[in-house]
Amino acid sequence: MPPRLRSALSAALLALSCLLVPFGALAAWAAYGLADTGRYVTTMAPLAGDPDVRDAVADALGAGIMREVDHKVHDVRPIRGSVVPFVRDAVRSFTQTRAFRLAWDEGNRAAHDALMRALRDERDGAESAVTVDLAPVTAQVKRQLTRDHVPLAARIPVEHTAVALLPAGELAPLRKGFHVLEVAGFWLPVAAVVFAVTGIALAVRRRRAVTATALGTALGGALLAAALAVGRSLTLADLPADVPHPAAGAVYDALTADLRTVSWLLVGVGLVVALSAWLTRYIPVLYARARDLPARPGYGDEAVRAERGTGGR
């Protein structure tokens, strides 16, 4: 193959490899990171101690409990007036207990399991919305209110109300997209490695090809980190006004923590490999120069005598 054609083909393969790196990392994170229930629950667990998340959960639970009271209990006004302050305080106190952390983990596990089952379900037929039951959390709050002797706390109804996680109409396209991610999450990284190895092997100047590949990988990692930052801003900007942005930001940061680590790892590894490849080009030159230095008779003896003379003074 002519050298010019080899160089052109190598450059094309290396450019394609560098382009696939950030997309491959994103697809692998979505397909194998977010889709794993155990890893998801472990990632979300620390958020049970985040003040913004606790406040958002407390507000949501308190509002839900009072809605149930309004719908199910007669003579609402006297009950609401006496219970609302206790509900608010009890729910906020509950979010600081070990019971809340357990309920948080179980709620996340149940929601994730329901969503993953829906996305992986291949059966034909009518689609139904993805829902999760949060009645166990409400029951724990009710038990705490009862133990605290809050008036009428025992009359707070606890029913198995399905909370919608995903509308039925959005399930089919999301299911197709998830299947695409599962395939892309495996094959995009593999293709990136194959293209890089093939491009370097075809290159006329392989050290230069390695340097270019490493710099392209670092650039891809930097672009991925920038995309995550932009995605965070856009996600928070699109949220409804009643959704607390600090809590949503904390959830976004927790979910994307591994992907941010991967992006900066790509930057670091790429720069280190590029610098190493650039430095190694000078090692043979320095070695050859060291071997070809002409011998200077008496240089060592003169240096020793000069050093001794200086010390004698």
Rank of each mutant, 00 (worst) to 15 (best):
V163P: 00
D148Q: 11
V69W: 05
G38F: 00
L61R: 03
L14C: 05
R207M: 09
T42S: 14
Q96L: 14
H74N: 08
A212C: 06
D50T: 09
L102H: 13
Q144T: 08
V273S: 01
V197G: 12
R67D: 15
D55T: 14
A227I: 06
G33M: 02
V262W: 10
V194Y: 08
G270Q: 01
H149E: 15
R98T: 15
L20K: 08
L219F: 12
V183N: 07
T310W: 15
T97L: 08
L286C: 05
P46M: 10
G249W: 02
T256F: 09
V21T: 02
P2F: 07
D75T: 13
A295M: 12
E106L: 13
R232L: 13
W264P: 04
G270Y: 01
T146P: 03
T131Y: 05
G49D: 12
L181I: 10
G125R: 04
F186P: 01
A31D: 04
Y299C: 01
W29Q: 06
E302F: 11
R143L: 13
M116P: 04
N108P: 03
L19C: 12
Q144H: 10
R4D: 03
G49M: 04
R208I: 02
V76K: 08
L34A: 08
W187Q: 02
L19T: 14
A203H: 11
A214E: 06
T95A: 00
A288W: 00
Y282L: 14
A90C: 14
D75Y: 14
A15S: 09
A110G: 05
L5G: 03
L234I: 07
A25L: 12
L20P: 05
L228H: 13
A226G: 12
G249I: 03
V73W: 13
A27H: 08
G268F: 02
V285L: 10
V193G: 03
R117P: 06
M1N: 11
A30C: 12
V83L: 15
P2R: 05
A8L: 15
